[in-house]
Design a protein around this nucleic acid. Sequence first.
DNA 1: TTTGGTTTGTACTCAAAGTACAACATAGAC
DNA 2: GTCTATGTTGTACTTTGAGTACAAACCAAA
Lengths: 192, 192
Amino acid sequence: MRQLPATIASKLYGAAELIAERGITEAKMDDIAAASGIPRATLYYYFTGKDEILAFLLTDMLEAIAGEVAAAVGTPGTARERLEAAVHAQIAVMLDQPAACRALVGDLGRATRLPELAHALQEAFQRPIEQLLDEGAADGSLQVQPHPEDASLAIFGAITVAGLYHAVEDTRPSAEQIAKRVLAVLMQGLAG
Amino acid sequence: MRQLPATIASKLYGAAELIAERGITEAKMDDIAAASGIPRATLYYYFTGKDEILAFLLTDMLEAIAGEVAAAVGTPGTARERLEAAVHAQIAVMLDQPAACRALVGDLGRATRLPELAHALQEAFQRPIEQLLDEGAADGSLQVQPHPEDASLAIFGAITVAGLYHAVEDTRPSAEQIAKRVLAVLMQGLAG
DNA sequence: TTTGGTTTGTACTCAAAGTACAACATAGAC
DNA sequence: GTCTATGTTGTACTTTGAGTACAAACCAAA
């Protein structure tokens, strides 16, 4: 995939809705060209094929999430406050591009190989969160986690599924609402 | 899709690994036939196409999860104990068919329309869990949840992502291990 | 042994992904 | 200005594989 001009990148989001609606298989290259306003030949000039278009959307979103999460983690405050900020950040990014989210859940396997995704996720999300859990254990704002990898995975899952669900359904509460509710469960726990 | 003989259904799982590895697009109908030992023409006799094969794997797994979860929920004990049992049950089902899980995350959109999945999930998982949360609030074993829908979504997400992650990676702890760790976070919460 | 569903092989059609390539546009370099 | 690189796009072509058609064989039960 060639270095992508910003104009093209932004136009592509115009096709995300289409891909989300039909799935990448039913969204023909001609349709994507029409929906994005980028001629078919140009698409093939920049991308090796359909899958790479999806891959672009995915990495774009992962980078956005990674960036926002990193920013939130780098903020001053207790580990707990920063964790809350990170959760808000991820949900905000997802709800910012609901169509891309829907397109991606539907066709994840065509955007990336799953083990690579797992790896990218670790870098973008798990690692910073694990660090936060560590720091929280130190500053007392969070509990000590015997298995921080699994804890961060559970956190990521809770956020992501909640975000995706609200991106798929259109009954969309604000990002703040969702984050608040997910955090309520994650922070307080379920036990009575 | 015609009523499927058990012999065919079971053979299909033999193709799940292939589909997981290559993705449904790269797994050609001929390959699926070869991998499952079901002749191509027979596949087309029972299924309208590739997607329906995937749909079969999905509904099969959802039914298994729904069944096990329902059983766990129907058990005697406090709501909390039953919730823990339900979590164990879901993870056990997922790790029982890791290949099908991987195949499905990769190509969810070809197995079902996403809104329908959201709906099926509500029936199979969210509803029983919400009920459990209610009962837990009543018997004191679980906290009162102001937004049980979102709470059950977060629970589902935490479990599912943890399960999928371990199904994709091959560093597979036992279902019990995973369930225990996810539950530790969910029950105790993160706050210090 | 006949009838109706199941199972399977073979041959065919057709949509669309991807490729090839030429024409045109644009912008620095000289 | 004109030359040259690279970017942009239209058009025509190739190829792959999904799905279909259909007939032959196979059962199982009436």
